[in-house]
């Protein structure tokens, strides 16, 4: 409940520039210099901040091919602190997918092999704007342009509704993006966060730090009775008592709630009181 509330508040706050929705333009003030830590398209009429993945690619794709230390530093810092905590607690698009998944229907799990996709998507997202450039020396934000469903929903479709003159620009690329969004929405009813589990480059980046982050899951092996309650409850299809901090874990903490013996806990590794009691540290 606390997590849902956080997700709701963040989603509203990040997209609360209401003038943009009424007038069909975007916020152009100084707050746009700040990157939000989650996927939230900066061309959304309601967005106050800038999407880190979009800005990283846009800077890399320019003539000067800027590698943004600011964005990499911000994401690395947040990753080191909580891994994918941002995905589970703050990301508006993740929240949107969880709302879809809340619809009562048969639920499926993604095949495990699909979970190898995110690192590849991340590598391509970061590298292609530098490497694949036109004759005049410009790259493109390829992930934003061809895939990002958050951008299609928050910016593309919203702006097409608010600014009818833009509709003349709709072409095959945009239609492909809409098809990806529709497919993810449909899958999202049956599969938990399909985009986050397979295609999100930002989640993949944070996932690199899940094992090392300060705030992370801990398993007290002496208490674990291997009852599998955690793995049955994990929406990402992980086996928390074996792979507590795997890159797919978004820290929803469902496993800690269902564990009957309290073997799974979440906390800061520096001052980890529940753990300290047992180890005497």
């Amino acid at each position: 409940m606390k997590r849902r509330l956080m997700q709701l508040v963040t989603s509203i706050l990040a997209n609360s520039y209401l003038t943009g929705f009424f007038r069909g333009h975007i916020y152009r003030g100084p707050l746009k210099a700040l990157c939000v830590p989650f996927l939230n398209c900066y061309s959304c009429p309601g967005a106050w901040g800038t999407c880190p993945m979009g800005a990283f690619q846009a800077l890399a794709a320019g003539f000067s091919q800027t590698l943004s230390f600011y964005i990499m530093g911000l994401l690395t810092t947040l990753g080191a602190l909580g891994g994918r905590l941002v995905c589970g607690w703050l990301c508006p698009f993740g929240f949107f997918q969880e709302l879809l998944y809340a619809y009562r229907s048969k639920k499926w799990r993604l095949p495990r092999w699909l979970k190898i996709l995110p690192p590849f998507v991340l590598a391509l997202t970061l590298a292609l704007p530098f490497l694949w450039r036109s004759g005049v020396g410009m790259g493109q934000p390829y992930f934003c342009r061809f895939i990002c469903p958050a951008g299609t929903l928050e910016a593309g479709l919203t702006l097409l509704i608010l600014r009818p003159q833009l509709r003349t620009l709709v072409g095959p690329t945009f239609l492909i993006k809409v098809a990806i969004l529709v497919m993810l929405i449909l899958l999202g009813v049956f599969i938990w966060r399909p985009f986050c589990q397979t295609l999100c480059p930002l989640g993949a980046f944070y996932g690199l730090f899940n094992n090392k982050s300060f705030w992370r899951l801990k398993v007290k092996e002496s208490r674990c009775i291997k009852c599998q309650a955690c793995s049955r409850s994990c929406p990402a299809g992980l086996v928390p008592f074996i792979e507590a901090n795997a890159s797919g874990c978004v820290r929803c903490l469902q496993c800690t709630k269902v564990c009957p013996t309290g073997a799974l806990t979440f906390g800061c590794a520096v001052d980890y009181a529940p753990f300290r009691t047992e180890t005497g540290g």
Binding site: A33, G54, K177
Partner: peptide
């Protein structure tokens, strides 16, 4: 992370991000 963040801010990358963020990027939307 903190080092990169500091270097980025000292290089004035906030302004670069701002320049990108204040324009509707039609290309980014496909």
């Amino acid at each position: 992370g903190l080092l990169l963040l500091m270097v980025g801010l000292l290089r004035g990358e906030g302004v670069l991000v701002l320049e990108k963020g204040i324009n509707i990027c039609l290309e980014c939307m496909g």
